[in-house]
């Protein structure tokens, strides 16, 4: 066991990590970040997506110890109920949910995409979300929500990025 320190949504947190423990299990079990979902556990479904040092990764395929000192963003870090992120707003408006299990990962992959490419076309949106599976197969609404969020952000140019980004 090793005591590690990492930044979750702008706040430094510490916890005990086992050598072989994945970042996903560490986040859920040690730090109680249950907004990071455990789906397949082998990098196929993308439910466990987090943004680490600015890039999207599957937290089930990263060891907790490899994230020591890293900046992690989870879905919880994007916005609050009263002050949602444009992507969260768009997902609500477009009804881009069925069971909701894939949503945190979808939103983070969408954020990673829009951070790199603020005006993606539909093909680029599909490619940006290709590492995330929705088992209810509600992809069309999700794609619409991402397109709508990208228009929204470019209209307002109101940047709600986390302040240390």
């Amino acid at each position: 066991m090793k005591h590690i320190r990492l930044q979750i949504n702008g706040v430094w947190r510490t916890g005990w990590a086992n050598p072989g423990q994945t970042l996903l299990d560490f986040l859920r079990e040690e730090l109680n970040c249950t907004e990071v979902k455990k789906g397949c556990g082998k990098g196929d479904c993308g439910a466990c997506t987090v943004i680490m040092n600015g890039i999207s990764i599957d937290s089930c395929l990263t060891l907790a110890l490899q994230a020591e000192g890293a900046e992690i963003i989870t879905a919880k870090g994007l916005g609050t109920k009263d002050n949602p992120h444009p992507l969260q707003e768009a997902f609500i408006e477009k009804g881009a949910f069925q069971c909701g299990f894939c949503t945190p990962g979808m939103i983070l992959s969408a954020k990673a995409l829009l951070d790199k490419n603020p005006k993606p076309n539909r093909e680029e949106i599909r490619r940006g979300l290709s590492g995330n599976i929705c088992r209810c197969t509600g992809y069309r609404k999700i794609e619409e929500a991402v397109a709508s969020a990208s228009e929204r952000s470019s209209n307002q140019s109101d940047d709600r990025e986390l302040k240390d980004q």
Binding site: D58, S130, G131
Partner: peptide
């Protein structure tokens, strides 16, 4: 190779 999250790592 994989999806974006895999290609990033």
């Amino acid at each position: 190779v994989g999806g974006p999250q895999i290609r990033n790592r």
